[in-house]
Design a protein around this nucleic acid. Structure first.
Lengths: 124, 124
DNA sequence: CGAGTTGTATTATATGATTCATACACTATA
DNA sequence: TATAGTGTATGAATCATATAATACAACTCG
């Protein structure tokens, strides 16, 4: 478990996002145990309360569940998991479109830039 | 002059962004006078100090310039203007790619989604 | 001249979000 | 039983942002 943080977004938000990505790509399987709050905090070098906050958000969103005081686990609800993936994709698309529209760039031109950047990153 | 603010980003950042968009699209021409700090504050219903902060950032970035105590003006440096446009586009592209890559979605699929969304917004 | 406009600077305050320190209850297990 | 691990709750501390209240120098123009 490793996450590179930017200093723009809140840490707990970035943690949630990282988990969503792992769930969306199947790196976390339904029912799988995830690190405890304190363990995650140690691994990511963040405050335990920040880890707790991230987990709390995920629990309220139905992404993870907790029974008694044993470590939380990834949800087994496939529908939720599918939605996470959808949500991440649509969010990225919406953000991009609202950022690019006001600049009046031909759509095919920006699409070209995206493909370029997308493949450049594969190699670097 | 009208700007719709979201509550996520700082107001002064959104003001700067709005000006960048206006410059990049040519709605503000080189050398053109822009509203005074106090006037902008009145128009956008924000605090004059927030307007001042936005203008200060833009001045430091070379987007606007101020002579004596007359109203600030859009830079006449075409290179700076071109860079603003480049910067806005590349920033949007980079944000999008780093958001979408971890999810492992086929590139052509997301490109389709973008075109869809891009055109949907035109009608609505 | 003088009133009103510019830009600029300083200081204080308020607010909200984020992070941190600490404590508590529960449970497994050595 | 007691130690160490869970999750959870609460209040304080910190920080960025936004707002506010003034102040000052310079310029325009009636």
């Amino acid at each position: 478990m490793k996450v590179t943080f930017n200093k723009r977004d809140p840490v707990y938000v970035q943690v949630v996002r990282h988990f969503k990505e792992q769930i969306a790509t199947g790196h976390f399987e339904p029912g799988q145990e995830i690190p405890s709050r304190r363990e995650l905090a140690t691994q990511l070098k963040i405050n335990p309360n920040t880890a707790q906050r991230a987990y709390k958000e995920m629990e309220e969103a139905g992404l993870i569940y907790t029974e008694g005081n044993s470590p939380s686990k990834i949800t087994k609800n496939e529908k939720v998991i599918d939605n996470v993936r959808e949500e991440l994709i649509l969010e990225a698309v919406n953000n991009f479109v609202s950022a690019i529209r006001p600049i009046h760039v031909p759509i095919d031109e920006v699409v070209g830039l995206i493909k370029e950047k997308y493949h450049d990153d594969e190699e670097g």
